[in-house]
Design a protein around this nucleic acid. Structure first.
Lengths: 206, 206
DNA sequence: GCCTTTGCACTACGCTCGTATGGCAAAGCG
DNA sequence: CGCTTTGCCATACGAGCGTAGTGCAAAGGC
């Protein structure tokens, strides 16, 4: 017997390798098969259509991203501060090493497709919503002792501010990611920008 | 006689219309010709190859973006504050109306191509550099009366801080733009985020 | 008024794409 | 052992692509 899931994972991996190297437009059944070291027929055997393949591959990609974030969080030295965890999550979203670069490129490919494909858009937005929630959660915990502020604003307004800050950070990270991909920003500079923003967020939050 | 430039502009317009509606991958000589109401041969007559067409079209797109920003700046009510000008430039980069949406989508198409095409990457980065410079310029002017700070930091460090802030704002705007395109953020929310950031930038700059 | 240049249309070639289909060896099972 | 299922390969078809080439009508200069 053959491990079908394993085969599908192999194919997904080959797909994103091509997408990262030459763009999603270069992804074809034949190319994927060649990159995976299989016959075209075999790929077709596991994915009846190209859309099936892409759908599975995007799901797999999301798992990969989740794992990447979990790894980054786990790598934060103990005892971990909430601020450090937040930074770990956000930097995990930046293309700072070859793997990260490939994943970011693949993510962009999904984004592009989402622009003209409602099903993909749902999938994408759902993932982003989870991310936003996670970041907002960390921000809420990281909230510095703010004395009178808590009296000033109600809980609802506080949550609103936190979510706004989370969306700000994620949007910033997205912009930094594309700049990094084009080499328009160096790693150091991107991290400086992110850290600067994190410092401000901690100070002025709400 | 025929106005060749006008023809080329018409073709570029048709090209971006398709790219905005169905992605750059849907752009073909035949599709562009059809959208422009011309024969395929005519398009071919003005652009010998597809690459020629794309190159011209991206140049045209940049002009359009420049004009859009100029219009936005001109629309700022007099007497204009530097902060208002800055906000005008940044919001002009967001897809807030159909035209802006089309231009943003087209910009993304260029970005994607730039990822795998050095010539395009140069062109793109150059444009972004100009934008960064313009924003940094505005930020430098908008610098609030900061008393001792000027004594504290040298001019070089001040310039560095300003450029960092400019890159932060542009990265944020880029992230906001993609969120807006997917409907993941509302216009109001994106503007709130931007304004919030602008407020922080004014206060904590350097 | 001819004749060259200009502006444009049409067709054809070679290629790659997604997908459908048929066959074939090996494995599993009664 | 025989038979069915599984896993895989090879080929073919129709469509769309970029591009090359040819032809033809109108315009412009002499």
């Amino acid at each position: 017997m053959v491990d079908h899931e394993e085969r599908r994972r192999q194919i997904s991996q080959a797909l994103w390798r091509i997408a990262a190297e030459r763009g999603l437009e270069a992804v074809s059944m034949r190319e994927v098969a060649a990159a995976a070291g299989m016959s075209t027929g075999l790929v077709q055997h596991y994915f009846a259509t190209k859309d099936d393949m892409l759908l599975y591959a995007t799901g797999w990609l999301r798992e990969q991203l989740g794992e990447r974030i979990r790894r980054a969080v786990a790598a934060v030295p103990q005892p971990s501060t909430t601020a450090a965890l937040l930074r770990a999550v956000l930097t995990a979203l930046l293309p700072l090493d070859p793997d990260g670069r490939a994943e970011t490129l693949a993510g962009i490919a999904v984004f592009i497709r989402a622009l003209n494909d409602p099903a993909m858009a749902d999938r994408y937005s759902e993932g982003r919503a989870q991310l936003t929630a996670a970041v907002a959660d960390l921000l809420a915990k990281a909230d510095p002792a703010d004395g009178g502020r808590r009296a000033e604003h109600g809980d609802a307004q506080r949550a609103e501010g936190v979510e706004l800050a989370a969306e700000t950070l994620l949007a910033l990270v997205e912009g930094l990611a594309s700049a990094l991909l084009l080499g328009r920003l160096t790693t150091e500079r991107a991290l400086r920008i992110l850290d600067h923003q994190l410092a401000r967020t901690g100070a002025v939050q709400g």
